[in-house]
């Protein structure tokens, strides 16, 4: 596989429904063998995008590519999809329905059977083969569904909230499986609200809010960008002297009074400000107890971006 060609690429996707626009000029590029976090609040348009990739719906305009080729019917077989709302036939035997669903993904029956047996063995659930879904717990059913999603060895795996409904042990099991699939060459799009798992396993993200992409890139780079020139300073002394110590070139994002004349502040320096010069200025004015570079979590970035984006929208709407 050519490393430089993205496994999935969407260019200027627009999808409109009767009363609203689900996706408005969204472009996304998912590099090969990445774990790509597709983030966004509920109703942002993630599911619409996922359905377009799965060819369940078609965009009104824009282009979609898989491995550099325009999206076509055959691509279904290289995609594995775990929807957020899980479901299987309640009254059909598990083994039978797993084979059936694998066949729908283009596998032959014997191939599907032997592959499934392997996975059932790996997950130690061989004795479930002849059971029915209605006899299993929710977590057990989720495991089956995960196996069914990956059984045909998809090149592109789309997982919508894969960890919901799993206990911590099984969450870990699934997480390791995802990482292993990536090692073996799969590319994964992970749609989730669970920012912890994004931090942990995602290499890239795109944040969609109100049908627009508002943020995207490598996780490391995004975090760096948002945390750039941000510091937390704990000091003893007068707040006025702290504020007047260095004139211009920085802003205070947050302050917290820990005690009388004892503060913790979160500042952001402008690009032209030299960190050492800023510190020198402070040292003459207050007693600096600690000084730390700030790294924002994905959770903080998510909330900040969505809130900012929403308030902007509101203000334009009010005009």
């Amino acid at each position: 596989m050519n490393e430089s060609v993205p496994v999935f690429e969407a260019r200027n996707i627009v999808k409109r429904y009767a009363n609203h626009t689900a996706l408005d000029d969204v472009s996304i590029s998912v590099p090969a063998q990445s774990i790509f976090g597709l983030l966004g609040p509920n109703g942002a348009g993630k599911t619409s995008l996922i359905r377009i990739i799965n060819q369940i719906t078609a965009p009104d305009s824009g282009e979609v590519f898989i491995n550099g080729e325009p999206l076509k019917r055959e691509h279904i077989e290289v995609i594995g999809y775990l929807p957020e709302e899980r479901g299987l036939y309640k009254k059909m035997k598990i083994g039978e329905q797993a084979i059936y669903l694998a066949q729908l993904k283009g596998m032959s029956k014997p191939e599907a059977k032997s592959e499934l047996k392997k996975w059932f063995k790996k997950f130690k659930i061989e004795d479930w083969w002849n059971k029915k879904i209605e006899d299993l717990s929710k977590g057990m059913a989720q495991k089956i569904q995960f196996i069914i999603t990956i059984i045909h060895k998809p090149k592109l795996l789309i997982l919508d909230e894969p960890f919901s409904g799993f206990d911590p042990i099984n969450t870990n099991l699934i997480k390791n499986e995802i990482l292993e699939l990536r090692e073996n060459g799969a590319t994964i799009i992970l749609s989730t609200h669970n920012m912890e798992s994004v931090e942990e396993i995602c290499s890239h993200i795109a944040l969609i809010n109100k049908s627009k992409k508002i943020l995207g890139g490598e996780v490391k780079e995004v975090k760096e960008r948002f945390s750039k020139n941000q510091y937390k300073i704990e000091f003893k002394g007068n707040m006025v002297s702290f504020a007047n110590a260095v004139w211009g070139g920085w802003e205070m994002l947050e302050k917290e009074e820990l005690n009388k004349d004892h503060f913790l502040v979160h500042v952001k320096l402008n690009d032209e400000v030299e960190l050492n010069n800023y510190l020198k200025g402070l040292l003459g004015a207050v007693e600096v107890l600690s000084f730390n570079k700030v790294t924002l979590s994905m959770n903080e970035i998510f909330i900040k971006m969505v809130n900012e984006n929403s308030s902007q929208e509101n203000s334009t709407e009010n005009e």
């Binding site: 799965n54 369940i56 299987l88 729908l104």
Partner: peptide, 14 residues
């Protein structure tokens, strides 16, 4: 209602 439909329509046309 069992939601299996989304899995299936990702493999075949509705």
């Amino acid at each position: 209602s069992s939601r299996i439909v989304e899995v299936i329509v990702s493999s075949v046309k509705p």
